[in-house]
């Protein structure tokens, strides 16, 4: 077989010409690809499939114990529970901007201490950097008659529970 000048083929950016070059490159890229995929697979480990927190489904009490027109705060569940003539609803106190806990101020409005987002009494954004209104949390009544909230499940603004 005709031998090529080694100086030409061993240059830094020699273009693949021969079948041998092609096979060598294919082998090298296969090896790189295989290691990349292995790394990618290993990176699946830190993505949790089960979350360490206690259940996000929490009992808030018996519906009949909540007075009409009342407002109750559950600090550990980070939500406000309201009961008015229309029924029950719950609003999360976690700011939609960067996760601080909003404070309830005059007229039932909310304001965030971290970056000054302002929310109306129904959670809608009034000002500041929050991208969306405070989350309305899903409420249900359990078969045993408890008022239950799922703090990760959102319902649309204005949806109340009649119980």
């Amino acid at each position: 077989m005709h031998r090529e000048d080694p100086l030409k083929t061993s240059g830094r950016f020699a273009t693949p010409k021969t079948r041998r070059d092609f096979l060598g490159l294919a082998a090298a890229w296969s090896a790189i690809g295989a290691f990349m995929m292995a790394m990618l697979g290993a990176m699946r480990l830190p993505m949790p499939s089960v979350f360490p927190e206690s259940s996000t489904i929490v009992k808030l009490g018996k519906p009949e114990d909540v007075l009409v027109g009342s407002t109750t705060y559950f600090p550990s569940h980070r939500l406000w529970l309201y009961r008015d003539d229309g029924g029950f609803h719950a609003i999360s106190s976690v700011c939609t901007h960067l996760g601080c806990i909003v404070e309830r101020t005059e007229n039932g409005k909310f304001s965030c201490p971290c970056h000054g987002s302002k929310f109306a009494a129904d959670g809608a954004v009034l000002g500041g950097p929050a991208p969306k209104g405070l989350m309305w949390v899903e409420l249900t009544v359990s078969p045993e008659g408890w008022l239950v909230a799922d703090t990760l499940k959102e319902v649309e603004l204005g949806k109340t529970l009649n119980a």
């Binding site: 830190p46 993505m47 949790p48 979350f51 360490p52 927190e53 990760l152």
Partner: peptide, 12 residues
């Protein structure tokens, strides 16, 4: 989730 291993800052 990758950073916190949870929804909130905690042990993870």
């Amino acid at each position: 989730e990758l950073l916190l291993g949870a929804h909130y800052v905690g042990q993870e």
